[in-house]
């Protein structure tokens, strides 16, 4: 086992360093989400239809082919309007289409007039903290059928998956390394037991009470 010590040490170091920026983003945004430091909660309806009150830009587009799926149809319009980002949802009928788009630092409301072929666009900038929250919540569990329709959301999702795998590897190698340090064993066991006790009492509290 001792001959693997160096290997575990290197794995722990590199996986830990790689995931540290991700962990800081997730930990920082978790604090924001858990408290009311900023008003982070999106009013989806207000955002989606904000273009009804304020139009920053009007761009003409050619109507996409009718046999496209709803999401491909919306993507086609956005491409022509030069807008990139994650389509949060699609609302509308055969006359008009509302497409709320999100990306870190921006929330965009697009109303596509499917009769005249005009896209009305309203763009809002969001602050740094909302960028962190965007990263924390993406791709997330909502609107699963369309989520991940922007290449960067998929890229971020994969990076998060990879960093979570690294987190498990880093923590397991961390435990193995701690096992080697005889001086830290007792205090480590106490820390582990306190953590186990706190964790299990909360879980039991939720399930039994």
């Amino acid at each position: 086992m001792k001959k693997y010590f160096k290997l575990f040490k290197e794995i722990h170091l590199h996986t830990g360093l790689f995931i540290s920026p991700f962990l800081i983003i997730f930990a920082g945004s978790a604090l924001i989400l858990n408290h009311n430091f900023i008003d982070w909660q999106e009013d989806w309806q207000e955002w989606t239809f904000s273009v009804d009150d304020k139009v920053d830009e009007e761009i003409g587009f050619t109507l996409p082919e009718a046999d496209l799926t709803k999401i491909e149809y919306a993507k086609n319009i956005l491409r022509q309007a030069g807008i990139s980002g994650e389509i949060a949802n699609i609302f509308g009928d055969s006359v008009q289409m509302y497409i709320p788009v999100t990306k870190p630092g921006y929330r965009i409301s697009v109303k596509a007039d499917l009769v005249s072929g005009t896209a009305y666009i309203h763009t809002e900038r969001t602050n740094f903290w909302k960028k962190l929250i965007w990263l924390h919540k993406m791709p997330g569990p909502h609107n699963a059928n369309i989520r991940g329709n922007w290449v960067h959301t998929r890229l971020w999702g994969s990076a998060v998956d990879f960093s979570m795998i690294c987190l498990f590897i880093s923590s397991i190698t961390g435990i193995v390394l701690w096992y080697y340090f005889k001086k830290d064993r007792i205090a480590g066991i106490i820390a582990l037991l306190i953590g186990l006790l706190s964790f299990s009492s909360l879980i039991i509290g939720f399930t039994v009470l």
């Binding site: 961390g174 701690w178 830290d184 820390a191 582990l192 953590g195 964790f199």
Partner: peptide, 16 residues
Amino acid sequence: HIYLGLFLLLFIWLFG
């Protein structure tokens, strides 16, 4: 680094 990591281990795994 060691003790805090061990204390938070189960919470970190749960959130991961």
